[in-house]
Amino acid sequence: MSDQTYLSLENLSLAYGKTTAVKDLNLTIRKGELLALLGPSGCGKTTTMRAIAGLMNPVGGKIVLDGRDITHVPANKREIGLVFQSYALFPHLTVFENVAFGLRMKGVQGNELRQKVEAGLKSVGLLSFAERKATDLSGGQQQRVSLARSMVVQPKLLMLDEPLSNLDARLRLDMRSELQRLQKETGMTMIFVTHDQVEALALADKIVVMRNGAIEQIGTPEDIYNRPATDFVADFVGFENIFKLRDGKLIADGKEFALGAECPNAPGLAWRPGMVTLGEGPFSGTVLGVSFAGNIRGYVLDTPLGPIRAEVDAARPAYTLGEQVAFDLPVASAAPLHRVG
């Protein structure tokens, strides 16, 4: 992994007709990095990916790949691989011919073609399926064919659109480790788009959280998970108790609440349910809901601060519905937010 920028998006703006999809996006990726574009549907992540691939023209900005401005290079000349969410295999061709397509476009023929295609199929464990019709394969197999098809041409950048979302739970784990293995083996720079924070956290070196066509936060999985920059990111990665701060006090329901300790100078604070202490503290609330989840028990409390979600060790005695419970939002464990709303 070098420190040099490999792909950079500079003030990239994208639109569908008059509807702006992405505005002034700036992003850099180093060679060999595995980057996740994370966000809810409609946040512009897929649009950004399509623009990088050349499937849509930016209304403004620049895309530079490997030192070359590719903003106006047509998609078929960009040497970027894309694994579609639907896999987009060619239904009239065999698995072998699907994988061979890109190589044939490059003029690879004969023995060389056969060897490269077979190596590609072998790397995804589908060599024995070479002569089958591509669309006769299962979803997971189709995805691997699609992956091999994109990788055999050795693109400068490989992008994957929701690579795991169409697979069932077990296949998802397999595919996740397979992607990591392939990326490690080939050292290929990869970008994948996902709406699932678990996927992004598990796979990526770097995560870009997007919202409404703009970047909300860029960081390592640890950054995103532990130090969300905004209330949106915090909510997205499971901080369910998010508050605005003013003059060191929590703002809820238009009222101010003093916290037990000195507050950091931040516009907001966020707590995961597990960070809330139950049984002691300056606040109190009524138990609205209890849910048992194996090793932990989750509570919803009705409090002057609004609903508070808490999780505690299930081994502790359970509170019952309607019970008054004291609780604390410990400042020490809270994630300070840089921006709220």
């Binding site: 691939a53 050349g54 499937l55 998609a75 078929n76 000349k77 960009r78 970027i80 691989g81 894309l82 579609f84 639907s86 987009a88 295999l89 060619f90 239904p91 397509f101 890109g102 476009m105 490059k106 098809r149 994109s150 041409v153």
Partner: peptide, 16 residues
């Protein structure tokens, strides 16, 4: 009945 994305896939793989 034919998905439009297979054309995009072909283009990305180098076809006009």
């Amino acid at each position: 009945n034919l998905r439009a994305d297979i054309e995009e896939a072909a283009v990305i793989l180098g076809s006009s």
